[in-house]
């Protein structure tokens, strides 16, 4: 990244993936498209929600473990800082002070830093520059308007106050085919396993069950549901493109057995998202009962399709 160069998030609703895509590109560590990064890192297999179907699902997972592994799959060594701003945490301010210096060093080396909460919206974003005199970081977020800068003092103090910093240290070699297999195995595990930390959340096939049960019981947050479906519609479309490219690669011909079904799965999510237009925080998100019935049908069909897709991939990998 040259001084003053514009850094932009990759075009996706997944703010971590969009941020890391923008940061990697600016640092010269990645030159592929968003869908390729989503598939190769494994992030495109994420499907997480909780009982109330609120907007937290897409960003509630083990950041430290998963982000490290995702970047490792593309040969990027990364380091992370995660400190919660809570009454019983004594060292938040020390962590902040030390990391301001480290961010500046990274930026001086031409490497943007991915962080949590660059604006009030609890999403990931990029720190792309700084002004030491005014003690501000220039940032990029997932909204269309250019965000105001983040003051040094407010680092980690967004609406969900966590000091999270993802430093991209060095790019090394990696075996593409091996990384694809690792990503697919991560996807299969994500599809079948229980959510590891929070009992209120589920992943993969169980996340579908939570959505279907929440809709049946009328127990859901309309804003959250709209956000979830728009995020995952975007993810499924990117993964459709990833599988479509992968099917042409030598050694991954077995992917041809799932591309049609994945296209159908993506179509189900696109039509679901159209029923749930997203109007941002504070906007009106009304969902009528006919739409709920329609979404339930689509989610049941999507679960069945994705179960078949993941089953076939698992068989081929064994």
């Amino acid at each position: 990244m040259k001084k003053g160069e514009k850094v932009s998030l990759g075009m996706t609703w997944m703010s971590y993936l969009g941020s890391i895509h923008g940061a990697l590109k600016a640092a010269g560590m990645w030159d592929g498209e968003v869908h390729e990064l989503m598939g190769l890192t494994g992030m495109g297999f994420h499907f997480i929600t909780n009982r109330t179907l609120d907007a937290s699902g897409p960003t509630v997972y083990n950041w430290l473990e998963e982000h490290f592994e995702m970047l490792d799959r593309i040969g990027v060594y990364s380091e992370q800082i995660l400190v919660f701003k809570k009454e019983d945490v004594n060292t938040f301010d020390i962590a902040k002070k030390n990391n301001i210096k480290r961010i500046v060093t990274s930026l001086d080396n031409g490497i943007p830093v991915v962080t949590w909460g660059v604006t009030p919206i609890p999403e990931f974003g990029i720190i792309s520059g700084y002004d030491d005199k005014e003690r501000i970081f220039f940032v990029e977020d997932c909204m269309p308007e250019e965000p105001d800068p983040l003051m040094y003092d407010n680092l980690g103090l967004c609406n969900v106050p966590i000091l999270y910093l993802n430093y991209l240290v060095e790019k090394g070699p990696y075996d593409y085919d091996q990384s694809v297999r690792s990503s697919l195995r991560f996807g299969i595990n994500h599809w079948n396993s229980r959510y590891p930390t929070e009992t209120d959340y589920e992943t993969g096939k169980r996340a579908y069950d939570l959505i279907i049960r929440g809709l049946e019981a009328g127990r859901f947050d309309p804003f959250g549901l709209s956000y979830l479906m728009n995020v995952y519609a975007d993810v499924k479309e990117n993964m459709r493109r990833f599988f479509s490219d992968l099917a042409e690669r030598k050694g991954f011909e077995f992917i041809k057995t799932v591309t049609d079904d994945y296209a159908e799965l993506s179509d189900l999510f696109q039509s679901t998202a159209k029923l749930l237009p997203f109007s941002g925080p504070g906007g009106e998100h009304h969902i009528d009962s006919a739409a709920i019935q329609e979404i339930m049908k689509k989610m049941k069909a999507a679960k069945q399709l994705e179960d078949g897709i993941m089953g076939r991939i698992a068989e081929a990998l064994d």
Binding site: P120, D148, N154, L157, N159, P161, P281, G282
Partner: peptide, 14 residues
């Protein structure tokens, strides 16, 4: 008001 209502913990002022 919009900021406080939607993002109660965020208090950045320039």
């Amino acid at each position: 008001y919009d900021l406080i209502r939607l993002f109660p913990a965020f208090h950045q002022k320039y």
